[in-house]
Design a binder for these strands. Structure first.
Lengths: 244, 244
DNA sequence: TTTGTATAGATGTATAGACAAGTTGGAGGC
DNA sequence: GCCTCCAACTTGTCTATACATCTATACAAA
């Protein structure tokens, strides 16, 4: 199976073989791959060479490993839609899946240099920080950190408990109708907190989306950073639609 | 420097040390890191362990390696702006850099199942494919593959040579005013063609953007896939602005 | 029934050595 | 002066071995 004369590295050949097997659907999502030792025997390669090959598949998000258990085939990507008005819940329901969310933490900090610029406030002003973990079919999917001015929304923290319709809350209690103004997309690798919360390995690249929302008068409402598992989703932007 | 009793893997400790040194700016972009053997001597680690550590930095796009030469610190990310009307050239000029482009190839294919759906044409219809490589400061930056209906733009291929203002061309010759309607963002790993064209290693994740543009009557104009180097840029979306 | 222990098997980490292949610069020949 | 070629140095690949750590299971002990 492995050609040792054609100049192509053994681990790359094995990567290719495994990728083809997965893409042909020989293994279903969630099913276990052959163990490293099995593969090393079958293809007459050293276990480390096999590990190099599987590392590539991990990089591409095709498989994931669990220490002590084995290597498993990953699932397909979920398409997540974003527009001026986006709700996580409806966006996930639209694609026939089961959304859920948990408020991990809410606290206050001083704005500081960076945030004061983003939120257009003084750097000594207080900022409310909300950390929300969202799930799709019980699996951690993305992690959002929201920043809002405490001056504008003084009682927000006590209001939010239980409810995650942040924009609904802002409208109801403050009469603020927030609209997404811009989003910045970036590839980033997970920090250790991301790895814990989303239960991923350091090798899974993340899609980081930084968004700015304003009210209808153009006043800053929210600056938020959402980190998606790059292996689990793509994110679509609609330049016209109102979304919902 | 390396603590061998605290349960943290040596290669992770070394990764952390190197990341901090880079982020503090001890090494400037483009400068060479210590060689693997130097690091292994300095920190009393095996060369393979050092390689594991550097692999992490490579994953995060902090460094890049050149076989036979060494390991080098990568540059900061460029912010690339996208809106309804986006021109690569002006977007790059806006951030004070020097844009350039090259038409790699132009050819025709039958639409087939996938493309016919995207472009809203028959699967037997002909499709014009344009492959464009774009540069920033002489460095390959992104690779765009555009798909347009040949029925709508029959002579496009002969018109395009030399000029890369595709939308300008469409307006001038066909009276079509194209607007971006939606974009889908996704993390993907480079294929071998990407690695060749953008001159990157298989470890650099890419930001893939699939965009749909329509004319003002809502007719499909273009479906295109742009792959950015994830280590070189972030992409911003403006939900309102006309851009330019 | 519950708890603890032992074991096998899986991935994770670290070390050692060897050779391949690309890059560079200098010695030596012209 | 110019060129070729070789040696030294770099990263890339492969093998071999050892032990750590986590999971699952089986079985004994409380």
């Amino acid at each position: 199976m492995i050609n040792r004369e054609n100049g192509v590295a053994c681990y790359q050949q094995l990567s290719q073989i495994l990728i083809e097997q997965i893409e042909k659907g020989i293994f279903k999502p969630g099913s276990q791959l052959a163990t490293e030792i099995e593969l090393s025997k079958r293809y007459r390669l050293n276990r480390h060479t096999v590990r190099q090959a599987i590392e590539r598949l991990e990089d591409e998000g095709l498989v994931y490993k669990i220490k002590g258990k084995g290597t498993f085939v990953a699932s397909d990507k979920i398409n997540y839609k974003v527009s001026k008005r986006t709700s996580f819940t409806t966006s996930i329901l639209d694609v026939g899946l089961n959304p859920d969310a948990r408020l991990l933490d809410s606290y206050e900090i001083a704005a500081g240099k960076e945030l004061s610029k983003r939120l257009n406030i003084q750097s000594s002003d207080r900022v409310i920080v909300l950390e929300i973990l969202r799930f799709v079919n019980k699996t951690p999917f993305c992690h959002t950190t929201s920043f809002l001015s405490k001056t504008k929304f003084p009682e927000l923290r006590s209001l939010i408990s239980g409810s995650f319709s942040l924009f609904g809350l802002l409208k109801k209690h403050y009469g603020v109708d927030a609209l997404r103004k811009s989003s910045t997309f970036e590839v980033s690798m997970p920090e250790s907190s991301d790895m814990d919360m989303l239960n991923i390995s350091p090798k899974v690249p993340m899609l980081a989306v930084k968004s700015i929302s304003k009210d209808q008068k153009g006043g800053m409402v929210e600056y938020c950073i959402t980190k998606f598992r790059g292996d689990m989703c793509s994110v679509s932007v609609d330049f016209n639609g109102e979304g919902r």
